[in-house]
Design a protein around this nucleic acid. Structure first.
Lengths: 101, 101
DNA sequence: CTGTATTATCATGATGTCGTTATGTCGTTG
DNA sequence: CAACGACATAACGACATCATGATAATACAG
């Protein structure tokens, strides 16, 4: 349970999800991620490091650039599954509200 | 992204996952969850409240007891998908280690 | 070798989360 | 209504996480 919770924690941060989102199309270097997310360079670097440690992303230095890419695209499936449940839970909450009137 | 991150945050806490796990078989009242998890009553109550607010769990008072049950069992599928990716990422980390030797 | 671009790290402050203890609330029972 | 059991909430301390600004480390160009 502990390890699973830690794994989900990786996806529990908006900026980290935004970073992951930029990597949908394939590998990008840090600056590219910075530009596409609008986040600070230091912040992007830290999130990418965390994602690397979590085993979600692979680091590949190339010259003076460092490219990052998602290892298992199944993470996007996980996110999609999360979205789906999120929407369902919203409908649920609306129903609960309506029932309480 | 924000909302999705918040949703994943619900599953990013070991004790909360443990609580959810006790509800796999169906509705349970608070004391039953306390007994099965070994967590304090106050803590279980708080986690159940959070799960309720998140729309993951439904609260149903019955006499002096309060039963909770998972609304959409899809959350267990989400957890399963998380487990799967977690295991894959572990294999990945081992490979990365091996490659670095 | 110097300077520059790219990426990583550090130190810090602000904020959030978790768990505990104590107490409050509500329903039931005698 | 008094007492009890079940559950919820409040207050608090400990700790984790996040974002920032400044600075380091690295690779490359000139």
């Amino acid at each position: 349970m502990e390890a699973l919770a830690d794994y989900f924690k990786v996806f529990s941060e908006p900026n980290r999800l935004a970073v992951l989102d930029t990597l949908r199309g394939g590998a990008l270097n840090v600056t590219a991620v910075v530009e596409r997310t609008g986040l600070s360079q230091a912040l992007v670097s830290k999130h990418l490091k965390l994602l690397t440690i979590a085993g979600v992303v692979r680091r590949r230095p190339e010259g003076s650039l460092v490219f990052y890419e998602v290892i298992d695209k199944g993470v996007y499936k996980l996110m999609q599954q999360g979205e789906k449940l999120l929407l369902a839970s919203r409908r649920q909450k609306i129903n609960a509200l309506a029932a309480s009137i």
